[in-house]
Simulated scan of single mutants.
Amino acid sequence: MGEGAGRSSDGVDRRDALKTAGAVLAASMTGMSASADAQGTRSAASAKPDKLPLGLRLQGVQHFGLTVQNMERAFSFYTEVLGGTEVMRDGDFQGERIHNTLLTGQEIEARTRGVNPRTMGIPDLRGGAQRLDVRFIQFDNVVIELLQYRDADQPMGGPRAFAEPLDHMSPAFPRMMHICFHIRDDVDFNRFIADLEAESARRGMTHVRANRVLPVTSEDERRAAPLGANSNPITEGKSDGWRLIYCTGSEGEQLEFVQALGPVKRTFDGALEARRKIVAAAR
């Protein structure tokens, strides 16, 4: 949920966009010639803010939003397991303005199909039958927002959401998104994944399961795979130095964990430095 969303009256303030958000420039931009780069930054610097290219009017990524089934469970996962810190929480959002702000497109789609919006999982914030609660969690370079839509008679932070969660969502589905966490360079990636699963299981978070790089055909085989199967190190091509694994979170959401070392680390660091120079010249 972006800035400007709020109660049915005048809304609530949101924190300014994080200046340290983890935006990186596409690697292709690192190949710009020095003369083209200089010309572009000079023209950007002389332009008024509202005349700048859209990308230079941004401050990066402010947050990733995740709609959850169980707010307290998800909050515990992202704070107590993954170590984020709470920024703020708010809730009981309802009314005409917030409904229109978030759900206009879905309402139009339901009307076009000639079906009741509730059958499509569209809550009635307008009339107050459902409510929206949010919590923001700070990590080192970005914020995650947890959202829960609930019936009005359900308590804030409870385990029952308004709509049923979507199951069997492969990462290959168009519109599917994931949250990617960056593991420190000096951390043993495979041990991190093992500890993540163990800590989550200790808390009853049975959805937290990482993939394995070896073929497995059952949950028992997945759990029995050796420690070295917990991550996939890439050692050639443009992604040389990238290590990754996909994992599901406490709500069944798609997560990724990565390390970026060696050549790929230099690629991303260079792209970030190039981005910072372009943004600094535009201010």
Rank of each mutant, 00 (worst) to 15 (best):
V142M: 12
G158D: 06
V216A: 12
G204M: 02
F162Y: 11
A161I: 00
N116C: 10
D188E: 05
A152W: 03
E164N: 13
N141F: 08
G121K: 01
H178S: 13
N116K: 05
D151Y: 12
G121A: 09
M169Q: 13
D140A: 14
P215R: 01
R135D: 13
N116W: 03
R203T: 08
A198L: 04
A163H: 11
M176C: 14
D220W: 02
S218T: 06
E164D: 14
G128E: 03
L147E: 15
R175T: 15
E219L: 06
G157L: 02
Q138T: 05
G127T: 01
I179H: 12
R135Y: 11
D188N: 10
V187C: 15
D195W: 03
V134W: 03
I137A: 12
C180K: 02
V143W: 07
H168S: 15
G204V: 00
G128V: 01
A161D: 06
M120V: 06
M177W: 07
I179Y: 14
I144G: 10
T217D: 15
F139M: 04
G128C: 06
R150H: 08
Q154A: 15
D220S: 14
S200Y: 04
D188Q: 00
G204I: 00
E221S: 10
I179E: 09
E221Y: 05
V213F: 08
P174W: 00
V213A: 15
P215M: 04
M177Y: 10
T206F: 11
S200W: 02
D186Y: 01
F189T: 03
R160S: 15
A163Q: 08
I193E: 09
P155Y: 08
I179Q: 10
M120C: 12
P165K: 01
M169S: 14
F162K: 00
D220F: 07
C180M: 04
R175A: 14
H168R: 09
R131P: 06
H182Q: 11
L146Q: 07
R126Y: 12
E219N: 06
V216R: 03
T119C: 07
D188R: 00
L196K: 06
D133W: 00
D220L: 07
A198V: 01
G128L: 02
L214I: 10
G157P: 03
R175G: 15
F189A: 08
D124S: 12
